[in-house]
């Protein structure tokens, strides 16, 4: 089981390393958006709440643009049939989920300092913020993975992905934005319930996705 999972993850990283699709798309989007916001505000300070909204919107669209590819690539290139005959559906799901989580957390490592530096944002509750960002990233990656599988199997494209993902990710974005606003504004702010919600959201979503994925993946 573990060897198979590792081989699947390794395979996806080799393909990503050679094509650099998710990385290029997500980083380009984040870079252009951050630069655009910086130019539009012309150095004027924004309220912490506005920064929180902009920051998570950039994260959301970076995830939607980059992480979708993990499943649509399989359908577009006709490799999904090979994968279906080679690997059990549960292992396909888990490996793609782990790939998306690792990929998105790495992207957050690049996007977060970029946003904070270019827009000169001061984080007053640094520890809470540093825990909140990966917790939100984990939830976004979990949601993106199963939605990407659904969109890929329905023959849809990125636009459909963003539309159907919105109701699902709305609660997590709401919590992440509100908590980020507090972390930027209030010194020594720490609310474990927000972190718990994001982690529980990811956990529930992964559990349901794991059970449903074979039906999404195999049935035609």
């Amino acid at each position: 089981m573990l060897k198979e999972l590792l081989q699947n993850i390794r395979k996806d990283f080799i393909i990503e390393f050679r094509s650099r699709y998710a990385l290029s798309v997500s980083l380009s989007f984040a870079g252009v958006s951050t630069l655009g916001i910086g130019l539009a505000t012309a150095g004027r300070p924004l309220a912490p709440g506005v920064h929180a909204v902009l920051f998570w919107l950039i994260m959301f669209f970076s995830a939607m643009n980059g992480l979708l590819h993990i499943f649509t690539r399989e359908e577009e290139q006709g490799t999904s049939l090979f994968l279906r005959i080679t690997t059990a559906p549960e292992k396909v799901y888990l490996s793609k989920l782990i790939f998306n989580i690792l990929m998105f957390l790495s992207l957050q490592l690049l996007i977060t300092p970029l946003y904070l530096f270019f827009l000169q944002v001061e984080v007053r509750s640094l520890l809470f913020f540093l825990l909140l960002v990966p917790a939100g990233g984990l939830a976004l990656a979990s949601a993106s993975t199963i939605l990407a599988a659904i969109v890929a199997k329905s023959g849809g494209k990125g636009a459909l992905f963003t539309v159907i993902s919105f109701p699902l990710v709305l609660p997590l974005l709401w919590v992440a934005m509100t908590a980020t606003g507090q972390a930027l504004e209030r010194p020594d702010y720490f609310d474990g319930r927000n972190l718990l919600f994001l982690l529980a959201f990811s956990g529930s979503l992964v559990a349901v996705s794991y059970l449903l994925f074979p039906y999404v993946w195999m049935e035609e």
Binding site: K11, I14, I15, R18, S19, Q77, G78, T79, L81, F82, I85
Partner: peptide, 9 residues
């Protein structure tokens, strides 16, 4: 014929 292999590998 419908089954393709990973071109990057």
């Amino acid at each position: 014929p419908r089954m393709n292999l990973y071109g990057e590998l």
